[in-house]
Design a protein around this nucleic acid. Structure first.
Lengths: 214, 214
DNA sequence: ATAATTTATTTGTGATCACAAATAAATATT
DNA sequence: AATATTTATTTGTGATCACAAATAAATTAT
């Protein structure tokens, strides 16, 4: 019997999808930014077909909204929606963090510490995108350990939705300070204190917005 | 100035999408059921294009999985995944129910009572699909009052993912009994007891699976 | 000038096609 | 008979096109 393992190369649309998704999540696109099939298509030098799939997929995930005439744009979130999404973060992220806690060994904590210093750098250099990117990476690197893919998917889904709006908030306020609760999070991880971890993740998420919204 | 309001008729794919989505959520399709572009297309007498959009959209929502060769099928959930999704229900649904509580007036409670009797009927007649449908409607009619669209979207997203699997579980066990916590839920609503409501929603969701899984 | 109307352009939707890869069916080989 | 190989069929992907609806631009009328 001959077995040939295929590396099934990612389809054309997958590449475009991942790039756009990343841009949106990091706030590279501002709220209300509209995207067209043909525009996206010739940007990546492909036909309309894969471009269409990408936009619809992102729309299905809430990363884009579809106007009632079928146009695609990044969502413009009102305060109430933003607070709702943030409440979801406050609900989900402590839970997934708690699940990751038993599996969070030292190597992970070290890596998170490293990422945290990258956040500090982004603050100094006032680069909001790098800031958001490192900040999300800080959280994700922990959450990955929870081995709860469905939960992580929901969390990232929310990050996607708030991406563009968060960016403009950061620009309006200016990235003032490195998130002060991250050290407490790391401490809670080291001491395996689940209650403290939940609380710190919760306040980190909640305060992040509260700082911005007014 | 002349304003003409358009009733912008739903696109072709929207109709197909909603129907398929409903089928999946109610468990009309069993786990591992595979769907093809051409099959779906000629089932609805359309071209491949809208069929493709529908399948990809459902895949983006987790209602379908895409095999590594690009085929579409309803997900086959292992026990761990199923428990994770159920944990998410147990996390989200009490919260959204609590938010609905202040707005839950008597008319709503009456309607829920009515739906509950439909559940009882489905139990007697042993119609698992009607059972699931009425059961979800019971919950959704409450959650709609929360005015938390993002939260509701996540909840329905999870319902979508577990739809096919729940169906076979119901068939294996048989729909034995009308959910016993629903009356407690209604009681909690009437007395505006948030803590009790959270607890009852939680146990209703959790026990629902626990009953089935072993 | 401002608002209404007309014209031009852009846009998403759905259909059809060619193509390669994956699956199923049939045949041959051990 | 069971396994390997070949052939036939089915399948998703991406490209291109026509079309109608929506938007933008230009024009006209008030």
């Amino acid at each position: 019997m001959v077995i040939d393992l295929k590396i099934s190369e990612p389809s054309l649309q997958d590449k475009i999808y991942r790039e756009l998704r990343q841009k949106i999540m990091l706030g590279d696109l501002s709220p209300g930014h509209s995207l067209t099939l043909r525009g996206l298509a010739q940007l990546y030098d492909v036909s309309m077909t894969p471009a269409r799939e990408v936009l619809r997929r992102l729309a299905a995930e809430g990363a884009l909204i579809v106007t009632n005439t079928g146009r695609f744009m990044t969502p413009i979130l009102g305060n109430d929606r933003l607070e709702e999404l943030n409440a979801l973060r406050g609900l989900l992220e402590p839970e997934i963090a708690a699940r990751a806690l038993p599996r969070a060994h030292l190597a992970l904590i070290d890596r998170m510490q490293l990422i945290n210093s990258r956040i500090a750098q982004a603050v100094i250099q006032k680069e909001p995108i790098s800031y958001v990117q490192a900040n999300l990476e800080f959280h994700r690197s922990l959450y990955l350990r929870a081995q709860a893919p469905a939960m992580l998917a929901l969390v990232e889904n929310i990050w996607l939705q708030i991406g563009p709006t968060m960016r403009v908030l950061y620009e309006k306020i200016g990235v003032l300070e490195t998130p002060k609760h991250h050290v407490s999070i790391l401490a809670a991880l080291k001491s395996s204190d689940e209650q403290k971890l939940r609380l710190m993740i919760q306040t980190d998420v909640t305060n992040g917005l509260r700082m911005l919204i007014r």
